[in-house]
């Protein structure tokens, strides 16, 4: 019996966005079908993994996550370099955890200097992720954008409450922006429209739908991303035809389940493997929902997901 393979009718395409510059620049997007549905369409650029680096030594990471970076944890430059040289990172995501006004609250200039140093030390694209506090992000990210002009940074998060001020940096210095909205397809679209109206060109925009990990609302992010892709590809919704980034690892590793030791809860098995699998499985689910860039932490989790991407896309 010859099966007539059902195929979705697609009318749209995800925009191709190039991150960074020079020989290590990375292009993402360009899909013409649902994520990894390669029997229906093409995925000219494979989903990429950005390795996470913090701008100060984290004090709440479980042992498993800390171990691979123990020798560089106090030095973001060395840390970023290690990610590239030892783990083959194609993109670095510098999380500006130090600027949180409710935490360390490092001042804008000091924080921006750290970004500059990391940026100068790398030739791979650099994502700079703020703290989602509008006032502080505006202050810090503007300083970062100015200090690192010519670097083609990727700046996040840009939210409805600060898009005008941060959007201006992209226009002035050609940095790429990550438009961040709270798990809602309409808000994601609206923010993209606002940024477009402000004059941010389409080739400098990436969507952050706000994601969560297994056990903490994965399903919300999963479905919002599926809906975004559906609108972009089958309903020609141009304002949603952008690549999607998922800043997932910090959600995973702050969860209780990634921190419990085997002694505390023997049914949950080996703590290190559990953490790695929680990260890799959360990332894989988001990949199936439409992630173009996954921000990840543990080298073993990254290896698992990278191999899985290769296997799912092999010819």
């Amino acid at each position: 019996m010859a099966l007539d393979i059902p195929r979705t009718t697609y009318s749209g395409k995800i925009k191709e966005i190039t991150l960074g510059k020079g020989s290590k620049a990375v292009t993402v997007g360009g899909e013409t079908s649902y994520p990894l549905y390669l029997f229906e369409g093409t995925m000219p650029h494979l989903p990429r993994i950005a390795m996470e680096v913090w701008d100060y030594a984290p004090d709440d990471w479980p042992e498993a996550a800390l171990e691979p970076f123990a020798d560089v944890i106090n030095d973001p430059v060395a840390w970023a370099r290690k990610c590239v040289s030892n783990y083959g990172a194609e993109i670095i995501c510098l999380q500006l955890m130090s600027i949180d006004p409710n935490g360390m609250s490092r001042d804008a200039d000091e924080a921006a200097q750290v970004v500059k140093k990391v940026s100068d030390a790398l030739d791979v694209p650099l994502i700079v992720w703020g703290t989602a506090n509008h006032d502080k992000d505006v202050e810090v990210l503007r300083r970062v954008g100015e200090l690192c002009q010519d670097k083609n940074l990727i700046i996040a998060p840009v939210e409805e409450g600060d898009y005008k001020k941060i959007g201006a940096i992209a226009i002035a210095y050609k940095h790429t922006l990550i438009a961040s909205s709270p798990i809602d397809i309409n808000l994601a679209k609206q923010l993209n429209i606002l940024l477009g109206n402000l004059g941010v060109p389409d080739n400098l925009l990436i969507i952050d739908p706000t994601v969560s990990c297994i056990g903490y609302g994965l399903e919300y992010a999963y479905s919002v991303m599926e809906r975004i892709r559906m609108a972009a590809l089958t309903q020609q919704d141009e304002k949603l035809q952008f690549p999607i980034i998922c800043n997932i690892s910090k959600e995973v590793w702050k969860s209780k389940e990634a921190k419990l030791t085997k002694e505390e809860n023997p049914e949950m098995g080996d703590a290190k493997k559990r953490g790695i699998l929680l990260e890799a499985m959360s990332a894989t689910a988001l990949l199936l929902a439409g992630a173009d860039i996954l921000v990840m932490r543990h080298p073993d989790a990254i290896k698992l997901v990278r191999e899985t991407i290769t296997e799912l896309t092999s010819v």
């Binding site: 994965l218 949950m268 703590a271 559990r274």
Partner: peptide, 27 residues
């Protein structure tokens, strides 16, 4: 996530079974 009806595993260990069961609950 993608439409398996029964998933047979070579073995059970807490570190993989737990995330899998929670993912299933979520999806």
């Amino acid at each position: 996530a993608k439409y398996g009806g029964i998933i047979v595993l070579s073995d059970f260990q807490g570190e993989s079974l737990f995330p899998l069961l929670v993912e299933r609950l979520n999806i």
